[in-house]
Design a protein around this nucleic acid. Sequence first.
DNA 1: TGACGTTGAGAACGGACGTTCTCTATCGTA
DNA 2: TACGATAGAGAACGTCCGTTCTCAACGTCA
Lengths: 193, 193
Amino acid sequence: MPAAVTEERNRLDRAALLDAAETLFYAHGIQAVGMDRVREASGLPLKRIYRLFATKEDLVVAMLRHRDRRWRADLTAHVESVRDPRARVLAVFDWLAAWFAEPGFRGCAWINVHGELGSSSEPVLAEVRAHKRAFHDQLAAWVGATGAPVAEPVFLLAEGAIVTAAVTGDPAPARHARAAVETLLGCAPASPA
Amino acid sequence: MPAAVTEERNRLDRAALLDAAETLFYAHGIQAVGMDRVREASGLPLKRIYRLFATKEDLVVAMLRHRDRRWRADLTAHVESVRDPRARVLAVFDWLAAWFAEPGFRGCAWINVHGELGSSSEPVLAEVRAHKRAFHDQLAAWVGATGAPVAEPVFLLAEGAIVTAAVTGDPAPARHARAAVETLLGCAPASPA
DNA sequence: TGACGTTGAGAACGGACGTTCTCTATCGTA
DNA sequence: TACGATAGAGAACGTCCGTTCTCAACGTCA
């Protein structure tokens, strides 16, 4: 069998596996989902799964990276379809509002996994921090383009809206955060610490 | 044995058990801590534990309620030692900053447990929502006393600061949130949606 | 065609979990 | 002192987990 064909098959199986793992782990948490359910959902034999990822921890890390790429690409596509810098920042919160209203929304996958596993897995913790830093830096760049020095509070409002929408099951926090961001962008306060 | 003595013993054992459970569950998560570790840490025989709480889920719910009482009482004591309404709201974020800097800080116990168990346990979910609503309402009362209609964003900034401090391990979000709250309290915007 | 490396399907393994049971010791009461 | 209910210590039970192993089927190349 040509190596190129094997490679292509691995690529497709990896994608199917990561999609199945993401759906299950996001919906139920990591420890509540056994590898057998991942096998069942992905349609891949357990042996192949373990050849693609040596341990469940490896699969979790890869799943988080997979989700990170898609999540940030979707957000960026939505936000950067807008031209005006202030409107861009507000568009972040419109995107959040739409996300919160999706069926099956269960908050931030990275915050959830951090709450569940804590610091018991160094690679997972690193992945969580990498995602949050990437989101923070991206948001800070969009806020920076408006000239208002309010990147930190805008980030905190986004994070607060995500966890609050998750816990309450109500998408309203996106509206509240958006209104506050409008105020902050318009206030031009002395630069914060 | 007089009933009163038995009652008193149960009360003391319950308190020791809830303290031990809180420490373990907060540090490592719910599913990662077996009942045997709770027994070891509390010094109580397994049989007595199961007479006080019929299932692990019952223990988790009671532990969350126990922590809720202490957490909100500590916060309230700190905040209400201040007189000026605006200073009271800012004192919330000073208290958060001190909490974030404590050794062993691992974020909000209720958000963590929600992320871990999701909606797989109805009683736990209810306890999480009850805590968040109580904190929200308390904070809204303090913000309301300043006359500024910014209860929602102040709450979201607090939540965002808690999760961000937990994930990054850095207490700085408390300062950033505090600075933003000062701005919001001073801005007097048109009342938000 | 025939030998062989690799695969798929699922059983098997070792351990951990929540919960219950056994057995002995203890204590209050007569 | 003798007895019955209760408590403590920990073994035991049934289940589930992550991971590995077995074994039959298959496709590939001499």
